[in-house]
Design a protein around this nucleic acid. Structure first.
Lengths: 134, 134
DNA sequence: CTTGACTCTGGAGTATGCTTTATGGTTTAT
DNA sequence: ATAAACCATAAAGCATACTCCAGAGTCAAG
């Protein structure tokens, strides 16, 4: 895997699919570190920024807010004293989400099964199934 | 499990933890059906509404937008003809999320492990770990 | 050396998901 | 019967997360 170490914001945008404005916005929100600048003031990025930006995108897709992602990434900036604790608590949080998603998935599949079997004009049993979730 | 079949918006709010205003907002957004009214115009709710509202809360915590939740719940209002397909595709979507969350969790635990072992002043290896994610 | 693509900053605008405010009717307990 | 608590609508306001200008500098190609 070869990363050209220097690229401008447009290229970072293209390789990550994140818009230029959004990249600058993330910098403002400190999700990305302040970019190194060329003499003329252009932002310079590296492979690390690609990785970080892709991580942000993934986390967002999973429903984390920018604030939470900032926390997740903030782990890096800490001095490694309580990183272990933070990372473990975040992992637990994810486990909770996984459990909820699994239950929702089960409910939906059950529903699919029931609706597949029952006649087309029967009322769908979704609300009944949803009760199992709570 | 006994539900009193009739309750006003304040009680629904208390039992679900969702604010009165938000409940009305969800009705506006058609996440909740238009509530039956008393002669005086007060909204009347039942156990079904509790279930539905709790489902909405759960789905929101999992990062679904109101639009997506509307779709999930919309399954009910369809005539059971393609419910099976919709439910299955949603379940697949959740599986994808679960996979991503699992990977993020693994990365975080690895990170916790590494940071726990390494000296307190070493740089944290988070970015390296993040690469495994993408 | 100029055209066109790219970048900069600062600020305004937009969509989503509430939350608050203003104004007024209803219900209930004393 | 009246105060306190509850409910109604409509509209404005707010936080988050972008998204889109305006006005201006930078740079590579012909």
């Amino acid at each position: 895997m070869v990363y050209r170490s220097a690229m401008k914001i447009g290229e970072l945008s293209k390789t990550t699919g994140v818009s230029i404005d959004t990249i600058r916005y993330y910098e403002q929100r400190t999700l990305l570190p302040e970019a190194v600048r060329t003499q003329s003031g252009y932002r310079q990025y590296s492979g690390n920024d690609i990785t970080r930006l892709k991580f942000i995108v993934q986390a967002k897709e999973l429903g984390f807010t920018l604030k939470e992602i900032s926390q997740l990434l903030g782990i890096q900036s800490s001095d490694c004293r309580d990183v272990k604790l933070i990372a473990e608590s975040k992992a637990l949080e994810m486990e909770g989400r996984i459990a909820k998603l699994s239950r929702m998935k089960e409910v939906l599949l059950e529903l699919a099964d029931k609706c597949g079997q029952s006649g087309n004009d029967d009322p769908c049993p979704i609300l009944k199934s949803l009760e199992e979730l709570t």
